[in-house]
């Protein structure tokens, strides 16, 4: 019975993090929500009796995917509606 409640709680947490990741406009928070999805997925893989898959998902999904996303955000925009207003001004002047 406790097992069932735990599994349902983890599934609800995963779905809530997925909806938050695509609604939020600040991209850094969306990337951290993607990391939370991978973390819950690790626990679910362990409960479905697959320890090798859980190890791989924990090492790749949580650590390496998050760092590559963060470096991309560092080199591009931070918010979803940001863009360089230089071209907008140029077309407004012409």
């Amino acid at each position: 019975m406790i097992y069932l409640i735990l599994v349902f709680f983890l599934l609800l947490l995963m779905l809530g993090a997925a909806v938050y990741a695509i609604v939020q406009k600040d991209l850094l928070y969306a990337v951290i929500a993607t990391g939370v999805i991978s973390l819950v997925l690790t626990a679910l893989f362990y409960m479905l009796q697959a320890p090798d898959v859980a190890l791989t998902e924990a090492a790749i999904g949580v650590a390496l995917t998050t760092i590559i996303f963060i470096i991309t955000i560092r080199n591009t925009v931070r918010h979803e509606d940001d863009y360089n207003k230089k071209d907008d001004l140029k077309s407004a002047i012409e």
Partner: peptide, 10 residues
């Protein structure tokens, strides 16, 4: 449980 891919990423 373990192996080449898991250890390499660690």
């Amino acid at each position: 449980p373990g192996g080449g891919f898991q250890g390499g990423t660690i």
